[in-house]
Structures are given as structure tokens and as C-alpha cells.
């Protein structure tokens, strides 16, 4: 189990090549990194985990996209929407993670969604980029949303992932820095360490042993 940044966006979305970002992430202490659209592989001892980001408002379209693009080794990340959409997505097979919760409407992720996420082993992604990039009211709102998310997490214990969503090597933060940053919204260091390793459990879930005969 290794510390993993759950999403970064290299060139051309950002100003740093995938190799450079992987190299810098490795120096910071990450052993794996999730890159949407990348090919699986390894560079300077850091594993590259490919991902697809599904940004739809209709659940049927999400299902279609998973059928078309999901292949078991690719992490499927779905952008959060309103409450109904999120509940439907959290029951979908093949979804690994729901992201951009902070951008969804208020109450889009409630106790029912939290329970569904826990039951189906779907992680909720915490995007750290707005905490670094934004200031003022917007950052306060995001901190409030993450506080609320942590309240639900302490009750339902659904999996969490942490992503820097870095578009540049300058936006990357080390696991130790992330542990400190997460204390801003009440996430303790143990939970942060667990969240940094969640990606591995999402890709190889431990299923219950069944006696067949």
C-alpha cells in the first residue's frame, strides 16, 4: 500500500509533462499517481495509474461511458452532481470514485449518499487544489463543505481519496504536506494516511470469502 495522489493533470491540460510530474511526485514521497488518459506504467519507481473522468448529468450516460471505457485496470472517476444523481451513481457498478463534491449543490452528498458509498465501496474524493488556489469566501465555503464531509465520514466510514488536481509541478504537495493541509478541515493524520492509500483498495477490492460447497 503506497501513498497515491488520486488525480493530476499533466501537459497539455497543465504546464508540466506527465514524466516530470511523476518524477517530482516520487521525490516528494508518492509511490503511485493517477493520471487521466495515461497508459499504465512506471517511471523512476512511481507507478502510473490510468483513469477516466466522467462528467455527465445523466446517470444513463454515465453507465454508457463505464461500459465503453471502463476496463478494470482504469480508475473510473465521476463528477458529482445533484443529490439524485449522486445517489444513482453511488449504486453503479464500475464506479470507483465520486469527485468534485465541493462544486456540487449544497446537500448533494448527504447521509444516504454516505451510506451508499460505504456499502458499495465507492470513494469520495477530496480535491485539495481549491484550498491552495482559492482565497476568501470561496475557500471558506469549501472548508465548510469538507468539514461537513468529515462529519459524515466519522459516522459512515466511507472510503476517501485525496487528490491535488495539480496542473503543474508547482501545485503538487507531498504526503506530509497533505497531512498538515487536511487538518484545516478536521481530518486527522491517520484518516489522511488511510485516504492516501485508498486508490489501491479501489483497484483490488477485498471481497468476502464465500463457501461454495
Amino acid at each position: 500500500m503506497m501513498d497515491t495522489d488520486a488525480c493530476i493533470h499533466p501537459y497539455p491540460a497543465g504546464n508540466s509533462s506527465a514524466r516530470r510530474m511523476v518524477l517530482e511526485a516520487g521525490e516528494m514521497g508518492f509511490r503511485a499517481i493517477v493520471i487521466p488518459g495515461a497508459a499504465p506504467g512506471e517511471y523512476h519507481g512511481v507507478r502510473i495509474i490510468p483513469a477516466i473522468i466522467i462528467s455527465e448529468t445523466d446517470v444513463r450516460k454515465v453507465t454508457g461511458q463505464i461500459r465503453k471505457r471502463g476496463n478494470g485496470v482504469t480508475l473510473v472517476l465521476v463528477d458529482a452532481g445533484d443529490n439524485g444523481f449522486n445517489r444513482a451513481v453511488l449504486t453503479q457498478r464500475g464506479v470507483h470514485c465520486i469527485r468534485r463534491i465541493h462544486r456540487a449543490p449544497k446537500n448533494a452528498f448527504d447521509h444516504v449518499s454516505a451510506r451508499l458509498a460505504e456499502e458499495n465501496g465507492i470513494a469520495v474524493d477530496i480535491d485539495l487544489s481549491p484550498l491552495i488556489q482559492e482565497k476568501g469566501v470561496l475557500r471558506q465555503k469549501i472548508l465548510y463543505r469538507y468539514h461537513d464531509l468529515m462529519k459524515l465520514h466519522s459516522r459512515y466510514r466511507f472510503p476517501l481519496t485525496l487528490s491535488s488536481n495539480a496542473c503543474s509541478v508547482l501545485d503538487l504537495r507531498s504526503p506530509e504536506e497533505i497531512r498538515l493541509l487536511c487538518t484545516l478541515f478536521g481530518m486527522d493524520k491517520e484518516d489522511t494516511s488511510l485516504a492516501l492509500r485508498t486508490v489501491w483498495t479501489l483497484l483490488s477490492p477485498t471481497e468476502q470469502v464465500m463457501v461454495v460447497s
Binding site: N15, S17, R19, R20, E24
Partner: peptide, 10 residues
């Protein structure tokens, strides 16, 4: 001026 971060391999 655009600043890019690459590697020798790139």
C-alpha cells in the same frame, strides 16, 4: 512567457 516543466526524456 510560458514556463514548461519537462524531463530530458520528453
Amino acid at each position: 512567457q510560458e514556463l514548461l516543466f519537462l524531463t530530458q526524456d520528453d
